[in-house]
């Protein structure tokens, strides 16, 4: 067991877990930030996508040891204060989720995309989002939601 201090959603969290523990388990099982999901454990599905210093990363393959040095970790819970990020509003507007399990990862990936590129083309959206699986098949509505948020056409929350 080792002690770590993580900076998550602008809050410091002190935890004690075994060295090498996956950041995903730390977030979900130790800190109760369960919006980030477990889907595959090998960075293939993207359900666990979070931001580390504003870059999208797959928490399941990250070890806690490497992210306790002041890196800014952001999860879906920290994306907006009231769930009203333009993408979240657009996701509601397009009624994108079905089962909803992958959607935190989808939204976090999309948020990172818009940070990098405020006006992505459809092809750029597809390419950037390709790593995040959705078994319910909501991809078309996800694209619609991203385009809506990009256009600034989304309803005010």
């Amino acid at each position: 067991m080792a002690k770590y201090t993580l900076e998550i959603n602008n809050t410091r969290h002190d935890i004690e877990v075994g060295s090498g523990t996956s950041l995903l388990w730390v977030l979900r099982e130790h800190l109760g930030l369960t919006g980030t999901k477990y889907g595959c454990g090998i960075a293939q599905c993207g359900a666990c996508t979070i931001h580390i210093d504003n870059k999208p990363m797959k928490a399941c393959v990250l070890q806690v040891d490497d992210f306790a040095d002041g890196q800014k970790i952001k999860t879906i819970e920290g994306l907006s204060s009231k769930g009203d990020h333009p993408l979240q509003r657009a996701w509601i507007e397009t009624q994108a989720p079905q089962c909803g399990y992958c959607q935190s990862g989808q939204i976090m990936q999309a948020a990172a995309l818009l940070e990098e590129n405020s006006n992505p083309s459809r092809e750029e959206i597809k390419s950037y989002m390709n790593g995040i699986l959705c078994r319910c098949g909501t991809y078309l509505r996800i694209i619609k939601a991203i385009e809506l948020a990009t256009d600034g056409k989304v309803e005010q929350g």
């Binding site: 930030l33 369960t34 919006g35 819970e77 994306l79 509601i92 994108a96 935190s104």
Partner: peptide, 21 residues
């Protein structure tokens, strides 16, 4: 009519059994 549970599915609060503690 919008689906009732969708807001909780975009802000991470929708609770699945795997989230129970």
């Amino acid at each position: 009519i919008p689906r009732t549970e969708i807001p909780s599915k975009v802000n991470g609060t929708a609770q699945f059994a795997i989230d129970i503690k």
